[in-house]
Design a protein around this nucleic acid. Structure first.
Lengths: 193, 193
DNA sequence: CCACTCCTTACGAACGTTCGTCAGTTTATT
DNA sequence: AATAAACTGACGAACGTTCGTAAGGAGTGG
C-alpha cells in the first residue's frame, strides 16, 4: 500500500522535475512519511526510479498491444487515426507517456545505457506490431502502391512523436491543430486514390 | 575570453545533464578555473543559465532567418527539404538545438514561465516566417489546392519536431530513415499533381 | 487473558558529500 | 599604483543514505 503510494508520487515528481530535480524528501512528504522510510521499500533512489520506469514501460507497451488488438478489424485509416487520438487522450490522463519520453530523451547519466537499451527494445517492438498492420492493409489495397510499408510505418511513428512533442509544450490548442494537420497530410500521402 | 569559455562549457553541461544535473564545479573545472571564479562574470547559476539560453535562442532564430533568406528563390519542395537537412546537420554539429529542445520541453521549475514564454514567441515567429513561404508557393501553384497553407505549415513543423525527437535518441541510422520516410509521405500529401 | 517474541514500519538523529554562494586575499596586467 | 581576475577558505542548506530505536500487530505458549 505505502509502496504503491511511493511509486505513484515518485512518478509525478520524476516526470515534473527529472531524476536529479526530484528529491526523496519531496516525494515522501506527499506520501505522508519521512524520506528515510522509503528505504523500507526500496534500496535507494536508483531502485525506486527503475521500479517506476519498469512500471511505466510495461503499461506503455500494454496500451499499444491492447489498442492494436481491439482495432484489428478497422480499416487502416480508422485504426491509425484512432491510435493517434487514443494516445493523445492517454497522454492527457496519465503521466506515463510524459515520464517515458523525458527519460528516453534525457536519461540520468549513470543509468543511461540501461534506459536507452530498454527504450530501443520498446521502440522496435512497437514498430514491429505496427508494420504487420501496414502489411495487411497494403495487401488489401488500402495504401498507395508508391508508398512502401517501411516508409508508411516509419513516417507514422515520426508523426506520433511529433504529436507527443507538441503536447510536451502543453499548448493543447496548438497540439490539436497540429495533430489534425499532420494526419490530414499524412493520409493524403499514404492512401490509395 | 574566460566568460566565453564558461558559456561554452556551461552549454555542454546543461545540454547533457540538465539544469539541476549540471554543477558549477564541473563546468568551471573544464574551463580550468575554480567554481567561485564564475562569480566574476555571472551573478549566479541562474544568470549563467539564462545567458546561455539567450545565446542559444538568438543563434537558433538566426539560423532559421538566414536559411529562409538564402533559399527564397528555391521551389517549395527544395526549400523545405533543404531546411530539414540543414537543421539536421546543424543538430549534429552544435549543441544549440538539443539544449533548446531540452529546456523547452523540461524547463527548470523556477524559470519555467520565463522560458516557456520565450519559446512560444520563438515558435510563433518561426511559424510566421514559414507560412509566408507557403503562402507564395500556394499562389504559384506548387501546392495541392486541397491542402491549406495553415495545414501544410503546421504539418511541416510537426514533421520537423518529429525528426528532432528521433535525433534525441541518438540513433542516426533510424533518424535518417525516418526523415526520408516522413518527407516522402509529406510531400506526396502536399504537392500539386 | 496475559505475556512473550517476532516482524514490520515509521522516525529522530546523524553521517559524509555536494551544492551554490559570499568574503577576503593574492596574482597578474596595464 | 590601479584594476581585473583568479585564488583560498568558509558558509548554510540540501542531498542520499545509514543507524539505532520505538510503536504496533500477529502469532504462540502458558
Amino acid at each position: 500500500m505505502t509502496a504503491e503510494k511511493i511509486r505513484k508520487f515518485a512518478l509525478i515528481h520524476f516526470t515534473q522535475n527529472g531524476y536529479e530535480g526530484a528529491s526523496l524528501a519531496d516525494i515522501s512528504s506527499e506520501v505522508g512519511i519521512k524520506k528515510q522510510s522509503i528505504y523500507n521499500y526500496f534500496k535507494g533512489k536508483d531502485e525506486l526510479f527503475l521500479a517506476v520506469f519498469q512500471d511505466v514501460a510495461v503499461r506503455e507497451m500494454l496500451f499499444v498491444e491492447d489498442y492494436l488488438k481491439c482495432s484489428s478489424l478497422l480499416t487502416l485509416e480508422n485504426m491509425l487515426y484512432g491510435f493517434l487520438n487514443e494516445y493523445r487522450k492517454r497522454y492527457e490522463r496519465e503521466d506515463d507517456t510524459k515520464f517515458f519520453l523525458r527519460m528516453a530523451f534525457f536519461p540520468p547519466g549513470h543509468l543511461r545505457r540501461e534506459i536507452v537499451d530498454y527504450c530501443n527494445r520498446h521502440l522496435d517492438r512497437t514498430v514491429l506490431l505496427l508494420e504487420s498492420f501496414f502489411e495487411s492493409a497494403a495487401s488489401k489495397g488500402e495504401m498507395h502502391s508508391d508508398v512502401s510499408v517501411e516508409r508508411a510505418s516509419a513516417a507514422f511513428t515520426a508523426l506520433l512523436d511529433g504529436v507527443f512533442v507538441e503536447m510536451l509544450y502543453g499548448d493543447m490548442e496548438r497540439s490539436l491543430k497540429r495533430l489534425d494537420a499532420s494526419w490530414y497530410v499524412y493520409w493524403r500521402g499514404v492512401k490509395n486514390s
